[in-house]
Design a binder for these strands. Structure first.
Length: 527
RNA sequence: GCCAGGGUAGCUCAGCGGUAGAGCAGGGGACUCAUAAGCCCUUGGUCGGGAGUUCGAUUCUCCCCCCUGGCACCA
């Protein structure tokens, strides 16, 4: 039972419909998962939903539904998104599942027993209308409360807290000793910056059940439910526990689960990468490591933080209609066009800007004119001049192909998906240039040049075959379609990287008919 | 306010001591296998402002201006 490469997305909070940001994070994670599979690793990729909490409770009530029904209905929408995005996830976690409650209870019980949790009254100003405590920051400069809060009353409430401050020095040391723990580096610096300058406050981990019923009760104090942290973050170990991972079961004192999911048991924990958005970095780079440390569990190896998307230089906003609907883009342009644009346009880290013009420009220039046209002209010429029969191998472009494979592999290992696509397109450009330099359409007119034409055609279709393999993690469907046109069946297993070796196409092999991969589209405003 | 990172061709960015580069966009050309795609050539910048160090600064130092991100419950 070898340790699998375990990668997660953040779980999404189900108080609305999915948008570009959600879709982006999932695509990034999917590509990394597929890349590791391609390069020979056993991978476990999980995404899911965070379904508890006040907003869900309120949204359900507003629709006259009980929360579980509300969550079940929304979950269908999110499962559909995962399918539409072509995700290769191995599990899908929902925090309302029984398997999750068991693990949350186990962690909380362990921390309670070890004295890491304590209860304490909190007194503050409470908005009855909004059902939330207010702070001095919510107060108007003149000391009054904004009318939007309605009636504001002083309220005392007992809650449970998690001792964090005593782990602060340990965490700083851990981050310093593990430079790749928080990526990219600018995020690491930010986390170190505030960890060094501010003393961590203990974390309030509960809400009275009387005020928030939609949650997991504290195992040692059922009049409270656990509040977000131990509920949402714990999902990552829930999945491992549910698949029978002893690295989680033993420290938490959990029995091996009876579920079929745990047969055979998998070794998942610790996670290799948590992919998250920059907005939740403190939870993943500060709270989560401390929670795990206190519970005696190993830490994830990397918190990989991506940026946010804007549209036309403006913040995405439902109220102003400045949104990108990933489902609509996929419907109109195809899944791989969507995946390509978000991966190629934005490196993992900085914020990005979606423009319809940019999308169409990359679609036409890079997918249609670059990759698609290369395949089309290569397959077309082989059909036209050699009845689709592959000639004897020739290795004129082998060094270029192997450079592309080498660069792509290296960049993928660094999670530089954007850089890897650039490296792959270097080969696309090289092969297109090769056509101009060798002019096979002229060679075809002179029977004395037949041997030379054979060489050129082989180099072209073989380059296309290697491109299909390199693209498999990024554009799985396109990869299959290229192989299809080359008359090659889809690989039987995901560990395809050995197929990047030059010379895979055999003499005498018959390719299929050419068909445009990405039909060119006229530039016009997107629907 | 504090911390960090930036301000270089129309756009996105690389360069970081020896008087500027790429991709895209714009302009021109030869070709024709191809999704009128691809290929070749090309216009275009007092490198945010000022001072200093230096034989010499886009590159180093200082000051100023502007932008972005972070500063503890938004992917």
């Amino acid at each position: 039972m070898g340790k699998r490469f375990y990668i997660t997305t953040a779980i999404d909070y189900t108080n609305g419909a999915p948008h570009l940001g959600h879709a982006y994070e999932k695509v990034v994670t999917d590509v990394i998962a597929r890349a590791h599979r391609a390069m020979g690793e056993e991978v476990f990729f999980v995404t899911g939903l965070d379904e508890h909490g006040q907003k869900v409770q309120q949204a359900a009530a507003a629709e006259g539904k009980d929360p579980m029904t509300y969550c079940d209905e929304l979950a269908l929408q999110w499962l559909a998104l995962a399918k539409d995005l072509g995700l290769s996830n191995d599990d899908f976690i929902r925090t309302t599942e029984a398997r999750h409650k068991a693990v949350v209870h186990a962690i909380l019980s362990k921390l309670h027993a070890s004295g890491d949790l304590y209860s304490q009254p909190y007194q503050g100003w409470y908005s009855v209308k909004e059902e939330t405590f207010l702070t001095e920051k919510d107060r108007n400069p003149n000391g009054s409360w904004d009318p939007k809060w309605g009636q504001v009353i002083p309220l005392t409430e007992e809650n449970w807290y998690f001792r964090m401050a005593r782990h602060q020095d340990w965490l700083v040391a851990h981050i310093e000793a593990n430079p790749s723990f928080i990526a990219p580096a600018c995020r690491r610096n930010e986390v170190l910056g505030f960890l060094r300058s501010e003393k961590l406050a203990d974390l309030c981990i509960s809400r009275p059940a009387s005020r928030l019923s939609w949650g997991i009760p504290l195992p040692f104090a059922p009049d409270w439910v656990t509040y977000v942290w131990f509920d949402a973050l714990t999902n990552y170990v829930t999945v491992a526990a549910d698949h029978g991972d002893p690295a989680v079961l033993h420290p938490l004192g959990l029995p091996a689960p009876a579920s079929p999911m745990a047969q055979p048991p998998l070794a998942l924990w610790p996670a290799d990468i948590h992919v998250i958005g920059k907005d939740i970095i403190k939870f993943h780079a500060v709270y989560w490591p401390i929670m795990l440390h206190a519970a005696g569990l190993p830490l994830p190896l990397q918190i990989l933080t991506h940026g946010w998307w804007q549209k036309d230089g403006q913040k995405l906003s439902k109220s102003t209609g400045n949104v990108v609907d990933p489902i609509a883009v996929i419907r109109d342009w195809g899944l791989d066009a969507f995946r390509y644009y978000v991966l190629r346009e934005l490196a993992i880290g900085p914020d990005g800007n979606w423009t319809d013009e940019g999308f169409q420009s990359r679609y036409n220039a890079e997918l249609a004119n670059g990759l698609g046209n290369l395949l089309n002209r290569a397959v077309n010429m082989l059909n036209k001049y050699r009845d689709g029969i592959v000639p004897a191998p020739s290795d004129e472009l082998a060094p270029d192909a192997s450079r592309a494979v080498e660069n792509t592999s290296q960049l993928l290992r660094q999670n530089d998906l954007q850089g890897a696509l650039v490296a792959i397109w270097d080969l696309v450009s090289r092969a297109n240039l090769y056509v101009e330099q060798t002019q096979p359409f002229k060679l075809a007119k002179d029977s004395a040049q037949a041997p030379r034409l054979d060489q050129v055609l082989y180099n072209l279709v073989e380059s296309c075959r290697i491109l299909a393999i390199l693209l498999a993690p990024f554009l799985p469907d396109t990869s299959r379609r290229i192989l299809g046109q080359l008359g090659i069946p889809a690989p039987a297993h995901p560990h395809v990287w050995p197929l990047t070796a030059w010379g895979g196409l055999q003499r005498g092999h018959k390719v299929a008919a050419p068909q445009p991969l990405f039909p060119r589209k006229d530039l016009k405003p997107m629907a």
